Structures are given as structure tokens and as C-alpha cells.
Amino acid sequence: MSSPKIVAIHGSERNHGNTADVLEYVGKVLAARGVELEVVRLGDLRMSPCGPCGDCNSRTVPCALEDDIPGVVAQMARADGILYTAPVHGFGTGALMQAFIERSGVGYMRFDRPLTNKVGGVIVIGRRYSHTEVYSHLMTNVLLNRMIMIGSGFPAIVYGNQPGDVLHDDEGLQMVERMVNRMVDLIHVLREHRELTGRDGLDTDLANERDDRWFAARHSPIDDPWTTTSCANGITRANCPKRTWTRGGWSGWTSYCGTCATSRTSIAGTCRGTCRSPSCPSPPRRICAGRCAPC
């Protein structure tokens, strides 16, 4: 079995400031445990800001903006653990980290949650105020992406202003060390379980939150033709075993597989999703919300 790997997102514009000092400390702790640390410095990336297109909530494919974010997401997906490390700027999360969360999360990770069941951790660095607010913000994004956070005592918050100050916050560094060691412990537990059972004990069949039937029903239009309108195979939304839908109602159809393979009816809305059925021809056909989708 290969050595575990943790990817740390360095969310500061300064590559040699307090955030870097804390990550250097983390690297030493992990090296003693036989774990590799890969640091992604957001300040070195080509990262486009979110554009004016405004179609994030209806897109069915990753963002069209071209920058370095897809490569970082792929790097994170190959790791065992993810560490969000960010400074407090202007009483909130540093701008680079916020931009990364928006671009990586909304633009790419929302579709199939590639960080599911990875071990997540958060470190916040700052002078005096708003540390816990930033910590809560980053923790929420860890949980949104279905990562696992493990308790380790007080949050990993380190105080410092001038470069090098954080190295004098003994208690803060102790919290960082405890969290990192607990992350490694959990990584080993999850790896051992997968090796023994051949499966992920926390696996889910929901690709993302929009596949959840409660969410779909909660946001479906009141006047939706729920039990009356059927597809070409005579199957209504009420009795389709694979039903999912979106706030926009039933969507336009292109080509299908599985239950609704012969239906090419157009009703309304926009296409969403990709068929994941093993019987679907390659490359997967596009499918739409509302009728027997995803196959």
C-alpha cells in the first residue's frame, strides 16, 4: 500500500508568510508519520474569477472558464486528506481562498463530489479577530464536499501578524499537531477498512445533493404534471423508479437509455446530468431531469 498523501490548499497571497510557516510545521509532523504533504499555493495558480454567465445552478457540465483549477481538483481527488489553510483578511476568509472555494466547488466538485470520504482539516491564521468565523466557513465547505472531519480538541487556530509570529503561538501549533495526527489516524482506519472489505463503508449512491428525492420534491413546481403526463413508454414521474427533477420542472429531452430509451419528447426546461448506467453506450448519453433520469 502506498504512503498516505494530504493535499494542503495554501490560501494566502504570500508564499513565505505565516501560512507557509504553519504548513512547514505540518510537513514535519506528517513526515514523522510517513505521510506526504503536497502544498498547492493559490497565489501561484492561474485562477479566473467567476464570470458573469450566471448559469452555475443549471449547468450539467463543469465550468467553461479555462484556468488551473481543474488540475488542482484532480490533485485533491487523488489524495487521502485535504487541508484548507487560510489567513483572516478583512474580518473574513482571504480572497484567494474564497475565490478557490467558488471556482472549485461550484465549477467542478458539485457534480459528483470527488472529495467524498476524504479526511478534511482546517487551519486558520490571523492577528486577532474573526478566526472562528473563518474556521466555520471553511469547515462548512469541508462538510459540503462530503469530507470527514475528526475532532481533535480546540480548533486549529494560530495567532500571528508579522512573518514568523505563528511559530511563537505554542498552543496554536499544538492544536495543529493534534488535528494533523488525528487526520492521519483516521486515514489509516479508512484505508484498512477498504483493504479488508473491498468497499467504502460510507459510500453513497447520490452523485450530488440535486439527486436527492426529498430535495427534488421540495423544490418541484406546484403545477407539475406529477401523475398525469407520461413518457413515450407510458411511465409517469410518480411511478418512475429512477425519477429526479429540478426546480425548473420537466426538462427537454435529447437521447436516453434504460427505461426511457425510446422517448424523444420535448416538454420544457434544460438538459441535466449524465447517464451512469453500466449498459449505457460509451460515451455516456446526455439525459435530463424529470423523467426516469438518471438511468
Rank of each mutant, 00 (worst) to 15 (best):
G94P: 12
R41Q: 03
I287M: 01
A31T: 10
T116P: 00
Y108A: 08
G198D: 08
G51E: 10
I6M: 06
K5G: 02
P281S: 01
G27Q: 01
T60D: 12
R272K: 02
V166W: 01
G81S: 04
A74L: 15
G92Y: 00
E36C: 09
N15F: 02
R285E: 12
G160T: 06
Y108S: 06
E192R: 15
W226L: 13
R191C: 13
T262D: 13
V106N: 06
G258F: 00
H188C: 04
C288L: 13
H16S: 10
C231V: 07
D185H: 14
E36A: 14
G151H: 01
T236G: 13
I287T: 05
A77N: 14
S255G: 03
R78Y: 11
R247V: 15
A99P: 01
L30V: 05
H131D: 07
V122Q: 14
G81C: 05
P283C: 04
I101K: 02
S279C: 13
V35T: 02
S58W: 11
I157M: 10
T228G: 05
G34W: 14
E36T: 11
S58F: 11
G34N: 14
G120E: 00
T197G: 03
G120H: 03
R272D: 00
P62N: 14
V106Y: 02
